[in-house]
Nucleic acid binder design. Structure first.
Lengths: 249, 249
DNA sequence: AGTCGCTTGTGAACGGATGCACAAAGTCGC
DNA sequence: GCGACTTTGTGCATCCGTTCACAAGCGACT
């Protein structure tokens, strides 16, 4: 992902001289993407614990609840600082606060949803967003029958108004839930409206400038990955049946 | 090089006695998970090309359309065999067929959706599934008002009937779109019904036996990852402005 | 045929993430 | 205060996936 930026033919110096790495570069922001995803999961688990008045948790307990191994959990947490107490564990409240800080959840992020079909409706009504600091503050579609209609308490605007409305409501995250052919156009509008992060549900590869972050959720791809595993299982079963496996003893 | 799958316990003979291992070679289904996900994307792009009567494509073109670099694309394709022609490229039809074969799409996979709320509705009506070999053939909920009601052409059954209905309709993939508290219970029912692959939209870490494959799609997590990037950007901008760094302890 | 240009397929280097194993650092009981 | 015990935080080895770079292979053109 974001590792590579800038123009290609810039840096390359001849090997041999001046190889001194400018140690200046790295700031603490070097959290692996995979770890960020897991931090979000830990946060959810921790929030649940906090609600049940759990005050302290060990890496072992938390990792079990999050479905990872404890060493990985500790390493992930170490990326954001040392907030544990050796011999005791982590204070739930502290961890929640720190993870929220790192994930940028102390600020609210306004979200807009584009494409108010089945999925768009579901997203607009999805309780998980506002509850976790992501107020859905704008909805867009092209269908004239939908414009002005409230969905989940928000009035639907026309796609043409994306730049104006997004600016007014300070939208920082755009969610695309349109049919595939419309996705790129919507994406371009969002980008020109200054939205820098996009969550794309349309089965399309979006072209965006370097400074825009895109994550995609493709249901068909997920299903196909599962299909692959179904097939692999079937193969393995057949293979085992045929006696390819040497069973000792 | 084929690093083998994790099965490991194979009979390892002395390095000198190199016997040919035809069965094992055929067994070399060691395709990285990440590559599988990309294959699904290539397949979508290729299908689009086929519809536009494109017959041949180079790794450069295809990789651009799929948003990856060409070396990675070639390596991904090499996992499934050598179906390209040097100096020319790949035949679209051939590639489509081979990827479908590897992903197990030559067989239909019946899907059931559990939890017919907003998201469940969206999934039941989602056109992308049946169009790609994933007929939704069963729906479940607990709400008595929904039982027997057709959604997307399928009647909703009660969750209690999961074992019977899934068996009857040979469901191989279960999709969980229930509220979080219900998810684990539903998951257990699916597992006991023999479903081996689960796509989980509930923000919960599911506990399943080893032989069951779970993929999760967590919208809140996706949003939080984006939030992290928003925050990181803001930090970078601030850092660039100040030109210095003081990290408070 | 021979050669030239193009594209695939892949060995090997690289880098990032994972898991292990242990020292450091704290608590608890006495 | 001290020693035993617990749990964190991390250096290190390992593994997996990505990227590079190039030989091998194919078609086209002379």
């Amino acid at each position: 992902m974001g590792a590579r930026r800038g123009e290609a033919d810039e840096v390359v110096s001849a090997p041999g001289s001046a190889v001194d790495e400018p140690a200046v570069r790295e700031r603490a922001r070097a959290i692996p993407e995979a770890a960020v995803a897991r931090l979000a999961v830990y946060l959810r688990v921790l929030s649940g614990m906090a609600e049940q008045s759990v005050t302290t948790v060990s890496s072992e307990e938390l990792s079990a609840a999050a479905g990872v191994n404890s060493a990985k959990l500790r390493k992930d947490l170490s990326y954001i600082g040392s907030y544990g107490t050796r011999g005791v564990g982590y204070e739930v409240e502290v961890l929640v606060g720190q993870i929220e800080r790192i994930l940028g959840l102390t600020r609210k992020h306004s979200v807009c949803v584009v494409g108010i079909g089945n999925l768009g409706h579901a997203l607009a009504n999805y309780g998980g967003f506002p509850g976790r600091g992501f107020p859905v503050s704008a909805l867009f579609d092209v269908d004239e029958d939908l414009i002005g209609v409230p969905v989940g308490g928000i009035l639907v605007d026309h796609i043409e108004d994306i730049p104006r409305v997004c600016a007014e409501r300070e939208v920082s995250i755009g969610v695309i839930a349109t049919p595939p052919p419309a996705a790129q156009g919507v994406c371009d509008r969002l980008v020109s409206a200054g939205v820098q992060c996009i969550l794309n549900f349309a089965p399309v590869v979006l072209q965006v400038p370097d400074h825009v972050e895109v994550r995609k959720v493709d249901l068909a791809v997920e299903m196909q990955i599962l299909s692959f595993h179904v097939a692999r299982r079937a193969d393995e079963a057949a293979y085992a049946d045929e006696g390819g496996m040497v069973v000792p003893g």
